[in-house]
Computed example of a mutant assay.
Amino acid sequence: MVRAILAPFPGALQNEALPSDGARTKDRIAVKVIASQIRKGNILEVEGKLYAVLVAESFHPGKGTPTTQIDMRRLSDGVKISNRYKTTEQVERAFVEDRDFSYLFADGEGFTFMNTENYEQLIVSKDVVGDAAPYLQEGMVVRLSIFEDQAVGIVLPQRMTLEVVETEPTTKGQTASSSFKPAILSNGVRSMVPPHIGPGTRIVVLTDDGSYVERAKD
């Protein structure tokens, strides 16, 4: 059984009615959701231990039962586990608080961010930042998911402008509509770009996967 413990509900009254699918334990609320609704940054409890979700991916085979694969990191010691559930299987999830932070710098301890409201600094582990690391720029405002004073998830701006530093030359007969070619961006991320895009061109990409959106207008 997978169970999550929720952080204290902000502003909740002692006699406030609980949601029909929730339960209160020691002033914390557990809310049931199906496995396919779990996302990166959610907090789950597995065998009495709290875990932050690193990756949650659902699979829908042509035959057989749809499943959701969840990779998690234990908050107490960083140990990672991976569990697979039926997509409709109920799990209990924690609510986290989302706050805006400005990125400052990275060092051996992790990535340091500053709360944009009270200017307090918070170090976020490399495991939490994950694939977002190459996109971080000094002063960039991101959304961090906070659970019991720990960052458990990060959301970058959806789009980012970067320069193409390396790509293949356009071959004869290749058109923008026929195919894309591999390119390396200024932050080291690999992307696929239209044939007319060459080194030195600034493009807009999605930070979720580095995919090409359009040529930058600036």
Score class of each variant (00 low, 15 high):
residue 1 M to P: 06
residue 3 R to S: 01
residue 3 R to V: 01
residue 3 R to G: 00
residue 6 L to R: 06
residue 10 P to S: 05
residue 12 A to M: 09
residue 12 A to L: 09
residue 12 A to P: 02
residue 12 A to V: 05
residue 14 Q to F: 07
residue 16 E to C: 01
residue 16 E to K: 01
residue 18 L to H: 05
residue 24 R to S: 07
residue 25 T to C: 10
residue 25 T to W: 04
residue 28 R to E: 11
residue 30 A to L: 12
residue 32 K to Y: 15
residue 33 V to F: 11
residue 34 I to N: 02
residue 36 S to D: 14
residue 39 R to T: 11
residue 42 N to R: 14
residue 44 L to K: 05
residue 44 L to M: 08
residue 45 E to L: 12
residue 45 E to W: 13
residue 46 V to E: 03
residue 46 V to N: 01
residue 48 G to S: 12
residue 49 K to Y: 09
residue 49 K to N: 10
residue 52 A to Y: 11
residue 63 K to Q: 07
residue 65 T to A: 10
residue 66 P to T: 13
residue 69 Q to A: 03
residue 70 I to H: 12
residue 70 I to L: 12
residue 71 D to V: 10
residue 74 R to S: 00
residue 74 R to F: 02
residue 79 V to M: 07
residue 80 K to F: 15
residue 80 K to Y: 14
residue 82 S to Y: 03
residue 82 S to N: 09
residue 88 T to L: 08
residue 88 T to A: 05
residue 89 E to N: 01
residue 92 E to A: 13
residue 93 R to Y: 02
residue 102 S to F: 06
residue 102 S to V: 07
residue 106 A to H: 05
residue 108 G to K: 06
residue 110 G to W: 09
residue 113 F to R: 00
residue 114 M to F: 10
residue 115 N to G: 06
residue 118 N to E: 05
residue 118 N to R: 14
residue 119 Y to H: 14
residue 121 Q to S: 15
residue 122 L to H: 12
residue 126 K to M: 06
residue 126 K to P: 10
residue 128 V to K: 07
residue 137 Q to S: 02
residue 139 G to R: 03
residue 140 M to H: 03
residue 141 V to H: 01
residue 142 V to A: 11
residue 147 F to L: 13
residue 147 F to S: 13
residue 151 A to N: 07
residue 153 G to Y: 04
residue 154 I to P: 15
residue 155 V to D: 10
residue 158 Q to G: 12
residue 161 T to C: 10
residue 163 E to F: 01
residue 166 E to V: 08
residue 168 E to S: 09
residue 169 P to T: 14
residue 170 T to F: 13
residue 175 T to A: 05
residue 178 S to T: 13
residue 181 K to E: 07
residue 181 K to F: 06
residue 193 V to A: 03
residue 194 P to H: 00
residue 198 G to H: 15
residue 199 P to F: 06
residue 200 G to D: 08
residue 204 V to E: 04
residue 204 V to S: 08
residue 208 D to N: 11
residue 208 D to W: 14
residue 212 Y to G: 09
